[in-house]
Design a protein around this nucleic acid. Structure first.
Lengths: 353, 353
DNA sequence: GGCCGCCATAAAAACGGTTGACGATAGGAT
DNA sequence: ATCCTATCGTCAACCGTTTTTATGGCGGCC
């Protein structure tokens, strides 16, 4: 054992009386270990245990080209949408003995790029991108899958056919929301659309239009406002508040309001309150996402739930599968999972009357 | 350039006509490079650039025993208290060219232990522990600083004199909160104390007692409830709600309520509402932390702000400093920073009357 | 008796860098 | 002349593994 106090494989070798190679073979149950008699194995194993040997992952990675690390790139970690996904991810990776290198891009393309390079340099075996908010084009990913690094984008779809995606069924979810309001008798509905730059925005809107058409509901353009492009997901609270105030000031009447997401909806609730309107008595409000604070607000927010933790777990699963494939020199499987959203009915919506 | 397509230092060496050693020395501006003439340097540098050489951090770490990685251990990433700290951390680490290995202990000691080992195995140069919620004794850390890994615990103090700590001044903050209520004229105040197992609980309580004494305020034990020990920080919403309902049911009268933290306070708000009481008209409510949702609730929550992002940045700074010290073979400096809390006055509190 | 397969282990060659110990040359001081 | 020191580089060892390729001995088969 060297002066550093760290036990190396050679220490185990000399302690057990075998060579380093044999120790390695035994401890890893390598193919060759099939020829090694049982008592040799136990001798080596007890020696290793006695010394408290822990293989150095750096050396191991260097040699075997496997880091047992995946990169996790987040676009904004302060987004409440992120953390449940991270939780789901982490859980699955932990089971599989992977660690995650976390990078927070702060919604800045340049930072994204730089982090991406750093992660690849570190030889991450896979990459998971939680793309909640604005993203420019993720073309940098090309460089990436070229290097045979399996990638999954969680949270939105992306037209880049080398990456897997896990996203919620925005269209269906939005339809669900509108259906809920419609079923409660609402016909005069205001909408706070998401910013155009977000693909989910268009999808949700499509779901709304589809349902409206099938239900014979007409959408009044005067009661439709669109969120500006914001860099900070938490800023949509302010935006939701202002747009709602605006609608109210313009004297538009509506009995329900459907917001792009929960934080926007909370902003709307606040605006209503300021105007002296009660939710849900005077106006029902529905959000989208079901972030943690949706359940804690007053009134608690009816919303469309994205199963974020499950999405995280699924993303991790896909990456781990792909890593296995790479291991076997097979092609990286690319999958696109779309998960159903679910209505969570709370206090902020009620039947008209 | 090998078949793998990855450029190694040897490729740069042959491309530039110098040896790998020289390339390494030049590219790292190692001490020896002071003898290398400028044009050699530029030749090597352009060769490196031409080939797109990127040193393999694994190999580098293995040799130089420096990973450029710090471990970040979180006790529960879904705690809204965590993410701003993470943001602060990440920002500082990014500047310093460090990446973070993220581990989420889920409040489970066993998981904490296992992750700790994994991180140390990976030769993290420093460790930052975000200890928001329950922690058993962190004695495992002993093993750690023994290994010369600088450690800072963010979010609470810990009686382990080898780790630095960054925490908020709980005592002062709590006094600030009570002073705020007192100044508004409140004398009948209910308290939802934190669970005893949390050290911050005791500190905040001490601040309350101190202020009460100096202001001649008597604390009615009948209006003091204590949160149970919960594993899930988000569960304190339920707890806050139930304890408040309980107090109300027991017919206790109070004009203000001070909660252990924001999520508890939100629970209290909900309980008041359910009982038909308005906040702040019938009862003022104050929280602690200033998590993101505090500003979004209705009424928005008056609270004591922990500067979490700054705490994260400070933690990172301390660790980076300590890493420098280790580099110079100096002792790891251990510091204890206590940051002042700040009153954030919003809608949920108002003068009595 | 030569060849082959089966065991049991070890030696050696990677993996991709860093680094301390030199070598060689030239100029300046002694 | 001799010694020292500064300059410019290279060699070879090393970091701690994994993995490929020996090295032998032994039994069986033609």
């Amino acid at each position: 054992m060297a002066k550093t106090g760290v036990v190396t494989i050679r220490d185990v070798a000399s302690e057990s009386g075998y060579s380093a190679s044999t120790v390695s073979i035994v401890l890893n149950s390598a193919p060759l270990s099939r020829y090694i008699p049982a008592d040799t194995k136990t001798r080596i194993e007890t020696a290793a245990k006695r010394l408290g040997y822990r293989p150095n992952p750096l050396a191991r990675s260097l040699r075997s080209q496997r880091s047992n690390i995946v990169g996790v790139m987040v676009f904004d970690i302060t987004d409440p949408f992120c953390t449940p996904i991270l939780r789901g991810l982490e859980n699955s990776l932990y089971q599989a003995n992977y660690l995650s290198l976390l990078a927070d891009a702060h919604n800045e393309p340049h930072r994204f790029e730089r982090y991406l390079e750093m992660l690849l340099d570190r030889r991450v075996e896979g990459l998971i991108i939680i793309a909640n908010w604005l993203v420019t084009d993720i073309k940098l990913l090309a460089d990436l899958t070229e290097r045979q690094v399996p990638t999954v984008v969680a949270g939105r779809e992306v037209d880049f056919d080398l990456a897997s995606t896990v996203s919620v069924d925005n269209e269906g979810g939005a339809a669900l929301a509108l259906e809920h309001l419609h079923r409660l008798g609402h016909r005069d509905i205001a909408f706070l659309r998401g910013p155009k730059a977000l693909s989910s925005s268009g999808q949700r809107w499509k779901g709304i239009r589809n349902f409206a058409q099938s239900a014979g509901l007409t959408l009044d353009p005067k009661k439709i406002a669109e969120l500006p492009e914001l860099l900070d997901p938490n800023a949509s609270f302010e935006a939701g508040m202002q747009l709602t105030s605006e609608l109210l000031r313009r004297g538009k009447s509506f009995t329900a309001l459907m917001a792009y997401d929960d934080v926007t909806a909370l902003g709307a609730l606040r605006a209503l309150k300021k105007k002296g309107l009660r939710a849900p008595e005077d106006c029902s409000v529905i959000g989208f996402d079901d972030v943690a604070q949706a359940g804690l607000s007053i009134p608690s927010l009816t919303t469309i739930r994205q199963p974020m933790e499950a999405m995280g777990a699924m993303s991790a699963g896909i990456v781990l599968e792909a890593i296995k494939a790479v291991d076997l020199k097979k092609d990286i499987p690319v999958v696109r999972r779309k998960i159903a959203a679910e209505l969570v009915s709370r206090e902020s919506t009620r039947a008209i009357g």
